[in-house]
């Protein structure tokens, strides 16, 4: 049985920051959890009914209430401010990296179709290179993915890159990430999209820069051969 609270290894640039935030929350909530439950159980044992003892008449304590109200408020607001920094890094439109490699991913029941710019260097033209259920990206370079859907809402989920974003029909949502390791990583659909939702998986293949270029040119040759 896997009862771990440790997140799987992250392989994106913002992964460690996001994971840190998660661990900070884990520690804070963990402490609150243990303290609260221990106090609860301790009170249950200590103040259990005994013959001849009466409960103490206490209507409350404004002081105690102020303390735990303001302590809670301070902690959660601090967490919100901490979260905002990381959220902006990932989602703020002005923070999108400039030298990014751009590709399109179009979802439909139940597959992911990635499109890369062909020889003309333009996305969305007839010479685009396509790959089905495989998304190829270069390592150590920011990547912008334009997410689109042909039918219903899907969700583009790369667990190890800490990427998840809904894919909404009628809209184009750009997202970005930068992989820090080469290799193959799972891609999943995280939004119920029909009876085949559970098998709408794919693979993110992170190449070294040279491998990525040679993969692209191989695909170009294949495409030309087909014609």
């Amino acid at each position: 049985m896997n009862l771990s609270w440790i997140m799987p290894e992250s392989v994106s640039t913002f992964g460690p920051a996001l994971d840190n935030l998660y661990y900070v929350i884990l520690v804070i909530t963990g402490i609150v959890f243990v303290v609260t439950e221990v106090v609860l159980v301790y009170f249950m044992i200590k103040y259990r009914h005994k013959e001849g003892r009466k409960a103490t008449y206490i209507e409350g304590s404004s002081k105690a209430e102020w303390i735990w109200t303001s302590a809670t408020a301070v902690i959660v607001m601090a967490l919100a401010i901490y979260s905002k920094g990381i959220w902006d890094e990932i989602r703020h439109p002005d923070m999108f990296p400039e030298n990014a490699y751009e590709l399109n991913v179009t979802a439909k029941q139940y597959e992911w179709n990635a499109a890369y710019a062909g020889p003309d260097g333009q996305l969305g033209t007839s010479d685009d290179i396509m790959s089905r259920n495989q998304v190829h990206v270069p390592v150590d370079q920011p990547v912008i993915v334009n997410l689109q859907s042909e039918d219903v809402i899907h969700s583009f989920f790369l667990p190890q890159l800490r990427v998840k974003h809904d894919v909404v029909p009628g809209r184009v949502w750009p997202i970005w990430f930068e992989a820090t390791q080469t290799g193959e990583f799972p891609l999943a659909c995280a939004e119920l999209c029909g009876l085949g939702h559970y098998r709408m998986g794919g693979t993110l293949i992170v190449h070294s820069k040279e491998d990525f270029d040679s993969w692209l040119s191989e695909m170009q040759i294949e495409a030309e051969d087909d014609e």
Binding site: M7, L21, Y22, L79, W87, V163, A190
Partner: peptide, 19 residues
Amino acid sequence: GLSGIFLASAPVDIYLHDT
């Protein structure tokens, strides 16, 4: 309530949403 704090934090929710 405490597990809700993870999900209220939008960046952590990126990973935990719909899991």
